[in-house]
Design a protein around this nucleic acid. Sequence first.
DNA 1: TAACCGTGGAA
DNA 2: TTTCCAAGGTT
Length: 292
Amino acid sequence: MPTTNLADAAIRWYDENARDLPWREPGTSAWAILVSEVMLQQTPVSRVLPAYHAWLSRWPVPAALAADTPAEAIRMWGRLGYPRRALRLRECAVAVVERHGGQVPADLDELLALPGVGAYTARAVAAFAYGQRQPVVDTNVRRFVARASRGAADAGPSTTAADLVDTEALLPAEPARAARASAAFMELGALVCTARSPSCTQCPVVEVCAWRANGHPPAEGPSRRPQQYAGTDRQVRGLLLAVLREAHGPVPAQRLDLVWADDVQRARALRSLLDDGLVMPFGERSYALPAQ
DNA sequence: TAACCGTGGAA
DNA sequence: TTTCCAAGGTT
């Protein structure tokens, strides 16, 4: 049966080739795995590594983070990007303390109900921290499944329900082995079945790969256009927050005015940071990271 | 559903 | 230099 071969081959490859990442060490807590998963949302492993160690050194359990301020979470987040994740991760810690006695829940629906935890992260924690049989579908797995199983060049627009069904069909029956298969699919997507130049000659499933069987057809349809950054509100938000992150206390509005010349856009960006709860007004004309 | 939300490194 | 993209989530 091809699907069984695919998972088995992936696991055998993973046993020999998996990167030695700290959140994969035996005995890693569910909290540490959750922290790693949130940090890894759209941020490369190499940049997550130091932040992961610093974060868990300071907040080794959810209750520790829940007791600290949002400002400190934002500061510790540093330049990982998408700083709303820092805010949500702290809110998540608060929820874990309030709803689950300080223990990261193992139940999928309880995980999904946590702030900043979506379809991918919830199943990643269920599988990697608790050994459950869950389809863990990230961008690597979507690409790997699209190629190896469906024979397409890429995964196309996200279709969460179908992605879950397609991936689940590839998982071995035994839960712990299914979790290992999920890790193997992710690692294959990250190291071998890459977006730009897949290394098919090094791929352990090349003989059962539908994309290869089809003769490596190119991607169909319009490629999603890359996200803009330069000149967008996101860039201005980043500049504003960087000033506040590096400041020790409240920052006068005059200092924020220096980061971007366009008054309208700068005001709009600041407004959105305030709306997000990443920044708070302080006094008459100053701003600070949220103290609570 | 599609747009929005940071940042940095590699090709 | 520009472009692409990296373990997504939320609205």
